[in-house]
Design a protein around this nucleic acid. Structure first.
Lengths: 124, 124
DNA sequence: TCGCTATATGCATTCTAATGCATATAATAC
DNA sequence: GTATTATATGCATTAGAATGCATATAGCGA
């Protein structure tokens, strides 16, 4: 059906037509980020951030990876990435904020490659 | 200000996150079309179509050209064109509908190039 | 075990956009 | 002038998304 292409496009545009969600995906295309990080950047209450993350997660645009108490989200939709490139231009540098308390942001030791492969569950 | 880039993007995505508006711009990227044509394709009341056209017109995405009783709209925003290409793929053929009564659709004589350059006012 | 922290969920309320419809405007033909 | 047709506008109503907030869940450490 041709109608599905329209439906799909409308769904995508709707997701991105929201200021907070747009800023979230723009941040995530720069690299993984935990919820507290996004919270610090966007200066919104945590439940509010989590709700928008849920919308994006259920739409299959982002994915969360649990690591202890923290959940790290990342962008997994390549079409969204292209749409952001078209409208916002190339992705900027990831924003390291002192306001964020998570290990990744605080001590750079526990940084990216995650050495001792302990459990990392998907968020669903 | 960096915030303006976000605002601008949100505005664009909002315009396209509406099923009727999306179909209108998709139709218009295939070529000029009069209101009655869009009305025939989308099977919606004329005032409703005109309202959505106004939204798109005031956002600077489309432009209307008056020709007698009829108004022919066309897409003038290239970024929107690129976003449609990304999400919907290449533009299809213009849809000639027998349901539409305007001269352009009925008798092909009065077709595209518009010979005897009579007055054509912009719609604002 | 309990307490603390990060994140998630549920739900009520508030806004804004979508929709429907009556009517206005503009151009043509008579 | 009047009548007719295409399009536009204004406005009331409705629907759905956005927001706020109380509370639930999950993991860690003592």
């Amino acid at each position: 059906m041709d109608k599905d292409r329209y439906r799909q496009a409308v769904r995508l545009f709707s997701l991105l037509s929201h200021p907070v969600r747009l800023r979230i995906v723009d941040e995530l295309r720069r690299g993984e980020a935990c919820v507290c990080h996004l919270q610090a950047i966007l200066k919104r209450p945590q439940p509010y951030i989590s709700q928008q993350l849920r919308v994006l997660r259920e739409a299959g645009v982002i994915e969360g990876r649990k690591r202890g108490l923290y959940v790290y989200y990342r962008l997994i939709d390549e079409q969204v990435e292209r749409l952001l490139l078209e409208t916002l231009g190339p992705a900027g540098e990831p924003s390291p904020l002192p306001l964020c308390a998570c290990p990744r942001c605080h001590d750079e030791a526990e940084s990216l490659p995650l050495p001792g492969g302990s459990v990392a569950a998907e968020v669903r």
